[in-house]
């Protein structure tokens, strides 16, 4: 149970949130298509980019940090993946390079935070600009278009058939679930994971208890960066081009997903399943608004309001739980 989230009650709350959204759209008379297997698969596929990013963010937020650079890093990884393929590299090489690109920026983030003692908010605000700039330089400020043959396989990560059973999900979704399981195991069944919670809950205590705080933080940001890199690779698969201007502002979606999922910005709290559900809720809302044919500005307002509502509700439940 612990692997999944903080407690059965909290978990129930998060699933209840999903049910509530379905109910609200139902009561507003959304088209029946909203409830079909096909739409659900589509929403899941749209969850992947934010979901995989939120896995890394969950690690960072549990440790009491924040990473604002993820949107830019997704774009940078997307571009490097495309560049490798365009230069004739194989798909495994391209995936590895894209992932390592993210890990490298994560490593930089970790080093800045640990050795220069810059708070994560500022350090990653800096690398947000740096990563975006690098993406544009590498791509000559144009999209990178590898040939169609060279990306065959990778371009199908988000593809799925219309009339297949529910478990026939696009590969990208399975990648998200697999990585989610991996991160959950790291958090709950490794010493590194316990250290992550300890650092986020009370850093001086962690230091007193002999936790190698600096090393752990560098590890955390690097691991999170690698996950963001995977997210970038997947986005490339979806776009089939390396676009240096993509994923602007994605970091906010990713942070929102993590927070809706029960992550606390003051550290020590957060869960993998919660963050994934948070990401799912975000794309479900987008989809519902689209099907209601609400204009874009209204969608933005609705999603903003839901974030505030979800977090307020979560805090209310927490307070009740403590008393």
């Amino acid at each position: 149970m612990k692997l999944l989230g903080k407690s059965p009650a909290l978990l129930f709350g998060q699933f209840a949130g999903v049910a509530l959204i379905y109910l609200i759209f139902f009561s507003m008379g959304v088209s029946e298509a909203f409830f079909t297997v096909y739409t659900t698969k589509m929403v899941l596929a749209q969850t992947v980019i934010v979901g995989v990013g939120a896995l890394g963010m969950t690690l960072i937020i549990i440790s009491g940090g924040i990473d604002l650079s993820v949107g830019s890093v997704i774009a940078l990884s997307c571009v490097t993946t495309a560049l490798v393929l365009k230069a004739g590299g194989s798909i495994p090489t391209a995936v590895a390079v894209g992932t390592l690109t993210g890990a490298a920026v994560g490593l930089l983030n970790g080093m800045l935070i640990v050795s220069l003692k810059i708070v994560p908010f500022i350090a990653t605000l800096g690398t947000l600009g740096i990563a975006r700039g690098l993406a544009k330089i590498f791509s000559n400020e144009r999209t990178v278009n590898p040939s169609l043959e060279s990306i065959r396989g990778l371009s199908e990560v988000m593809a799925f058939e219309r009339d297949t059973p529910i478990w026939d999900l696009p590969p990208g979704v399975w990648v998200m679930f697999g990585l989610g399981l991996l991160v959950a195991v790291i958090l709950h069944f490794t010493v590194f994971g316990r250290f992550t919670f300890a650092i986020g809950s009370n850093e001086p205590t962690a230091r007193l208890c002999g936790v190698p705080v600096s090393l752990c933080k560098i590890g955390l940001y690097t691991l999170s960066g690698a996950l963001t890199g995977v997210s970038g690779v997947l986005l490339f698969g979806q776009l089939t081009i390396g676009d240096p201007t993509t994923a602007v502002g994605k970091e906010l979606d990713i942070i929102a997903a993590t927070v809706i999922g029960g992550g606390s910005l003051s550290g020590g709290q957060g869960s993998v399943l919660g963050s994934l559900i948070g990401a799912f809720i975000m794309s479900l809302l987008r989809n519902g608004c689209l099907m209601m044919e609400w204009p874009n500005p209204i969608q933005e307002i609705v999603i903003g309001a839901i974030i505030i509502f979800a977090v307020a509700l979560d805090q209310f439940r927490h307070r009740r739980g403590v008393d």
């Binding site: 316990r194 919670f197 300890a198 809950s201 009370n202 205590t205 962690a206 709290q269």
Partner: peptide, 11 residues
């Protein structure tokens, strides 16, 4: 510094 009060006794 002494304790991470949000974490469990056992932790």
């Amino acid at each position: 510094e002494g304790l991470a009060v949000e974490l469990s006794i056992s932790e």
